[in-house]
Computed example of a mutant assay.
Amino acid sequence: MLFQRMTAFLATLTLAFAALAPAVAAASFELSATAKSNLAKLIAGADKTQASRLTKLNGDLQSLRKQDQSLDAKIKAIHYKNEEELVVLRKQIKEIDADKVNKLQQQVKQAKGRYQPLFDSYTALNKQIAAARRLNNKTLNALLRTQADAMKIAVQAARQDIRNKEQSLKNAKDQAAKKKKKMNDTLAGVHPVKVQLKAQRSKVASTKKLVASAVKNANQATKGTAKNAADSLSSLVAVSRQLVDQRQRNADLEQKVSDIIAKAKTQLKTI
């Protein structure tokens, strides 16, 4: 029973990999094993000129294949590194002067709490003065006014202290906002590059289809004459070179994003 289950599982995996294989092959510059064998026979049986041409085209194709693989790995590495660093950088930007602002906010809150009993007492005293006035009690009114005048100085000082702390908080927030804007303005340069990257990836996807078609034609052409095979390989090399050029453009754009990130990171250290 266990053996049957394992057999079924392995069969399922085999079918899954088989289904994936054409998609992988379609994006490759590689000729089929049969086509390679046919090409070797054509080179061996062709005249010197055709043999040389076929050999060179095959060499060019292998070189382009290696370049494409190298660029693909490079693009992925830079892209993932860029995305990770952007996440970290944007988080750091949000936290610019956060500790300073939080500390000043606490100072404002603590000052208001500390002075609130004074404000409450001053309010209550003024209410007593108003009541004494209604009672026409001049002696009490004069006494309360003396107390109020003395307390007024402390109240004014308390209010000024709170205003000073609130102004310090506002200044800190304004400075933090300016710093964040400077950083975000730098990172804004990433967006147009990403737009270009999206367009470039679309081009690569289209060219990959052309490569797949050219590989198919080249595989078929190796069954014919040396000239037909050379012409077909020439087309494959041309479209493969186009793909490599587009990949290089992708790599350049990803590097451009990386350079913007590096600039932003340097700015972050100086603000």
Rank of each mutant, 00 (worst) to 15 (best):
Y80W: 05
K223N: 06
T146S: 15
L86N: 08
R134Q: 10
S206H: 02
A229M: 03
D97A: 13
V190A: 02
L253W: 01
E83W: 00
R159C: 14
Q246L: 15
L140D: 14
A131N: 09
L57V: 04
T12K: 08
L143E: 09
V108D: 09
G59N: 10
E30S: 03
V215S: 02
S63E: 10
S168T: 12
G45P: 05
A154W: 00
A18Y: 00
L86F: 03
D185K: 04
R249Q: 13
K198M: 09
A111C: 07
Q220L: 08
F9P: 04
S37E: 14
L268A: 15
K203C: 05
E95T: 05
A40T: 13
D68V: 04
V257I: 13
R163P: 08
M183H: 04
A25I: 11
G224Q: 08
P192M: 05
L42P: 10
K179I: 14
V108F: 01
A214F: 01
Q156V: 14
F9A: 12
K208P: 04
K180S: 12
D161Y: 02
L61N: 04
T55F: 00
K76R: 12
E254M: 08
L233Y: 02
S32M: 06
T139Q: 12
L39G: 07
T14M: 08
S121E: 15
E95F: 04
Q196E: 11
M183L: 12
V108K: 02
N250K: 04
K48V: 12
L64N: 05
A26I: 10
A11S: 15
Q50C: 04
T207V: 13
H191A: 14
Y122P: 13
L104F: 06
Q200K: 12
Q116A: 15
A8Y: 02
K109E: 11
K41F: 06
N102S: 11
Q106C: 07
A148P: 13
Y122G: 14
K152W: 07
Q220K: 07
G59A: 09
K179H: 15
L2I: 05
N38M: 07
R134F: 03
A229K: 01
V244F: 00
L268F: 11
N217L: 07
M1Y: 08
K103L: 09
L125D: 03
F29Q: 05
I129V: 13
Q110L: 11
K109S: 15
L140H: 01
R133W: 03
S37P: 01
K94S: 15
R241F: 07
K227C: 03
V195W: 01
L89W: 02
V155Y: 03
E84R: 14
K165W: 10
Q50K: 03
D97E: 14
A8K: 07
S70I: 06
Q246Y: 02
N58T: 03
A199C: 06
R201N: 13
L15D: 02
S63M: 08
A177K: 14
R90G: 05
L86R: 11
V101M: 08
K170Y: 14
